[in-house]
Design a protein around this nucleic acid. Structure first.
Length: 572
RNA sequence: UGGGGCGUAGUCAAGCGGUAAGACACAGGAUUUUGGUUCCUGCAUUCGGAGGUUCGAAUCCUCCCGCCCCAGCCA
């Protein structure tokens, strides 16, 4: 029986695709390598915000833990006091939770193991496998050799065990200044794998650590701390990205040399997505150069940015499942992310009407001062979401794009003499387009057919187009921010050009004076809607003021008409 | 020019000696009170290239080519 099916009972969750890591785990279970246990971990360094690349790792690790009836630890890899802060651990916890994962009691910090790590370092020294090197950082670099030439042994490499023990203790006790010496593993300065040329294990940093304060002035390096933390926690499968492949040899060496419990490291390719960037360094520069408005700018691929943009955890999890897990470098089309988003939002979002670029319409044969309340379905995908009432009156707004003075045959919307349906309301016919002195259309004069109330003609006549609309007297005025891809090229990271020159100039457009149906006045920050015929929008969690909402466009709807026009534009 | 990893459609990705899954994208068509959704249909005679083994190769062997990672006291 496949465990995956048991753990994914959701009616529309397809069974998870297989990938090479599942094969490894299946084999390990068959061979009883870890007595059937599966324990993974997500080990972020608390030095920045999580992004969708981390989401891939989170979904993988927590997903596998759940799926195999095991668990996944959340471990903060806080070995570098210079870069790590409590602010980041809080945001990371919040983001993991928001994505829908639960670490239960398994919340750890590498800094919790500093005492044990120190003991392991002592043990390595006693075994003659580590030494205190007094070379400077620059000298160590010179001694390391190059990719094609072997390195040379440090003159301090032959220090005796007792001397090393004493020196290391002195390092711990603050007897040296930063950079004066370092603890190194004694492996092989001629190894073709650079990682194995006597890697540093401990360095001196006289910095306050966000959790251990000033207790320590020596801090373990990643390679030393990570494998040991995995070992201490009884991790079975230690998943990391491809760039750590070379480090696996060291991971194995430390654990084997110490002869302790040995999890296995497995590498997979990190996520790349078109039209965005997922390198922490580059993301930081977007924020610090104020190209975007903070880590949670709705254009950012950070979890907080996606959340503010209106993405759902379900959509992100679905995406992470669909992209697969493999070892080859790849760049996933952002259209797949958007597909997952729309699929989720389509099922769950209440429909609503809002006009972004208002054009006034006067229904000449509709009584002045009259207001009718018409029934509108909240979500045709889900009848349980019910209905609402929408006010209709003599003066309305429709979308400017929904009218054309000289309309081609294929244009199904309003034009002089043409009849269309106003959604859930009436059929109207355009009688006249009123222009201002500059020749711009400022108002449409129309008539309605009272017999078509609700949107159906008793005589069975059909109209091709259905428009969304808002009653002018009842409209809620709002600001709407239209978001689009951050970059205008597929792979900005691969471009030789300056990152700033690749930013999509239309990645954000602010529209004031948008007219929304009055029910939206009750929208709480973060609430998501489908504005019919336009896209998915959410009330911004930062900018909304009472009575003065701001909506973010999360994604457009697929727009066949726009595509036809674009194609025509290209052809002609 | 050292070592390691990886090459299957426009983009991801299954495949593990028996004759190329699936998804996105794209292109047609049907249904539709959202030009949305949904539903059909099409989309690799071939797996980076060349040889070889085999009745049979994306899968095994050899050589070649290309891309990525490693010379932090970052992770």
């Amino acid at each position: 029986m496949d465990k995956r099916d048991l753990n994914n009972p959701g009616e529309d969750e397809k069974s998870a695709p297989v990938h090479f890591i599942r094969h490894v785990i299946d084999d390990d279970i068959t061979s009883d390598k870890y007595n059937g246990r599966v324990v993974t971990r997500f080990p972020p360094e608390p030095n920045g915000y999580l992004h969708i690349g981390h989401a891939k790792s989170i979904c993988l690790n927590f997903g596998l833990g759940l799926e195999y009836g095991g668990k996944c630890h959340l471990r903060f890899d806080d070995t570098n006091p210079e870069k790590e802060e409590t602010e980041y651990v809080d945001s990371i916890k919040a983001d993991v939770k928001w994505l829908g994962f639960n670490w239960g009691n398994d919340l750890y910090y590498t800094s919790d193991y500093f005492d044990r790590l120190y003991e392991y370092a002592l043990e390595l020294i006693r075994r003659g496998k580590a030494y205190v090197d007094s070379l400077s950082a620059e000298q160590i670099r010179e001694y390391r050799g190059t990719l094609t030439e072997p390195g040379r042994k440090s003159p301090y490499r032959s220090r005796g065990v007792e001397e090393n023990l004493a020196l290391f203790e002195q390092m711990r006790d603050g007897g040296f200044s930063e950079g004066q010496c370092v603890l190194r593993a004694k492996i092989d300065m001629a190894s073709p794998n650079m990682v194995m040329r006597d890697p540093a294990l401990y360095r001196i940093r006289k910095k306050n650590h966000h959790r251990t304060g000033d207790k320590w002035c020596i801090y373990p390096m990643y390679d030393f701390a990570h494998c040991l933390s995995d070992s201490i926690e009884g991790i079975t499968h230690s998943l990391c990205t491809l760039e750590f492949t070379n480090n696996r040899e060291l991971y194995d060496w430390i654990l084997d040399t110490l002869a302790i419990y040995h999890p296995q490291q497995i590498e997979f390719a990190r996520l790349n997505i078109t039209r965005t960037i997922l390198s922490k360094r580059k993301l930081i520069s977007l924020v610090s150069e104020k190209i975007v408005d903070g880590w949670d700018d709705p254009r950012m691929p950070t979890i907080s940015g996606l959340k503010r943009r209106g993405y759902t955890p379900e959509a992100i999890r679905d995406f992470c499942e669909r992209i697969g897990v493999a070892k080859r470098d790849s760049i996933v089309d952002i259209a797949l992310l958007e597909h997952c988003l729309r699929q989720n939002l389509n099922r769950r979002s209440p429909r609503v009407m809002g006009v972004l670029h208002p054009l006034k319409v006067v229904i000449e044969n509709y009584p002045e001062g009259k207001t009718e309340y018409l029934d509108a379905i909240n979500n045709p995908e889900d009848p349980s979401m019910g209905k609402r009432s929408v006010p209709f009156s003599r003066q309305l707004y429709i979308e400017q794009d929904d009218f054309m003075e000289d309309a081609p045959k294929k244009f199904f919307r309003l034009a002089p003499g043409r009849e269309v349906r106003l959604r859930y309301a009436y059929f109207i016919t355009c009688r006249e387009a009123v222009k201002n002195e500059r020749g711009e259309i400022i108002e449409l004069r129309c008539t309605y057919d009272p017999k078509t109330r609700g949107g159906d003609a008793p005589d069975g006549r059909k109209v091709k187009g259905t428009l969304h609309w808002v009653s002018a007297a009842h409209a809620l005025e709002a600001t709407v921010r239209l978001y689009d891809h951050l970059f205008s090229v597929d792979d900005p990271a691969a471009s030789a050009d300056e990152l700033t020159s690749l930013i999509n100039p239309r990645s954000m457009e602010t529209l004031d004076g948008c007219m929304l149906e009055p029910s939206l006045a009750a929208a709480t920050p973060g609430a998501r809607f489908q504005f019919e015929r336009l896209g998915y929008f959410c009330a911004d969690s930062r900018l909304c003021l009472p009575g003065k909402p701001v909506f973010n466009r999360t994604a457009t709807l697929r727009d066949t008409w726009a595509r036809i026009q674009k194609k025509k534009g290209k052809a002609g």
